[in-house]
């Protein structure tokens, strides 16, 4: 199970790095998703090491996946509105605000 523990740490650092360094909001959202996956991976790997297999972290990760998809959807909607709003006055695309 060592590869997965190391992978969880690597993904966490990668996600954190991407969250700070990427400028495009879409990439930031992807980085956030990678970050949550790293946390899930750690939880499940630790549950796998337990004897017998511990189902409680599995349920927590299932809950977490659904919460992550809600977060992603809201973040994408907000970011898309922000991008459209930022170009609303000068850009070629104008949103129908009313």
């Amino acid at each position: 199970m060592t590869p997965y523990l190391v992978l969880a740490a690597v993904l966490f650092v990668l996600g954190l790095h991407g969250l700070f360094v990427c400028r495009h909001p879409l990439r930031k959202i992807l980085a956030l998703n990678v970050l949550t996956t790293a946390v899930f991976l750690l939880l499940v790997t630790v549950a796998r090491l337990a004897e017998p297999l511990d189902p409680v972290p599995h349920a927590m990760v299932l809950t977490g996946i659904v919460v992550t998809v809600s977060t992603t959807a809201v973040a994408l909607a907000l970011a898309a509105r922000l991008a459209a709003f930022g170009r609303g006055t000068g850009g070629k695309r104008r949103t129908d605000g009313s």
Partner: peptide, 19 residues
């Protein structure tokens, strides 16, 4: 950060609610 996290993951006690 990477080595600290790896070390923490390595040393973490396994949870025991399976039983």
């Amino acid at each position: 950060l990477l080595s600290l996290l790896g070390l923490a993951a390595w040393r973490l006690p396994a949870p025991g609610l399976g039983v």
